[in-house]
Amino acid sequence: MSCWETIADYALRSQGIGAKLLPRTDFTLCQQVTLIGSGMIWNIYFGVFSLVSGFLLATAVALGKASQTYWIRKPSEWFVFVFRGSPLFVQFFFAYFLFLTLKQSVPAMAPFTSAWLGALTVLFLNTAAYSAEIFYGALLSVPKGDTEAADSYGMSGWPRFRRIVWPTMLRLAWPAYTNEAIFLFHATTLVFFSGFPATGQQGDALYYASYFADKTFNPFVPYPILAGYFILLTLIIIGLFGLVNRGLNKHLPQDRRTRLRYRPLVIR
């Protein structure tokens, strides 16, 4: 079987398209690269959707945390504390069994017990909490002069937030937020090891990498392939976020622009 046939069979295997059975014997390098790459579709799916949706919630929670009103501030603080203070792995398990229990009384909850929606919900809430903390920190360091200037122009409420506070907050938060995005993508590898079933052996990149490692007793091939994919993904994220960073900084003189620095802060 040539490598092209393998790609045709397995490139979309993680989505249930292509060959039904996974390879069982005589594993070739091509199979491993293709199948692990196919699993990356899940990682990208989880990462992109939770990042985009989490961004909106995170902005709201950050504002909530900075609010003067007790009944808005406290829930926001608790939300951030609960999701940042406990392991994502346990959150996945808890959410899965919670959805299973809910499903018995509310049948409409059924989609939540599968990874594509259930795990996405957990990742969405989790990244919202982490990003909210970053945005909150940035919100507090928005220069006083900026808001005073907005006040003297007669801006208030929504226009002031939309045009003055928000862009500066994003600009200050962006380097840290880039790291958060990278780690979110890394965290997506936990999904299929935490209760959420991989139906029909349709799993993510790590799922296939560990499948190969289990079958061949040789970790030295599949895991470096996985690492290669993730380094590539990380570079793409840094590139894309770097473009946004340039946009956010373009009104500043060269020497005051914040540069993106990749400073990883590990698991959650």
């Binding site: 890394h186 965290a187 590898t189 936990l190 090891f193 790590l206 990498a209 560990s210 490692a213 007793f217 970790p219 030295f220 895991y223 996985l226 690492a227 993730f230 380094i231 990380t234 990749y262 990883p264 590990v266 698991i267």
Partner: peptide
């Protein structure tokens, strides 16, 4: 250790 998901590291190291 950067740039690679840590659980991949954990799973790799234990076998290796």
């Amino acid at each position: 250790v950067r740039g690679v998901p840590d659980i991949a590291f954990f799973m790799f190291f234990v076998i290796a």
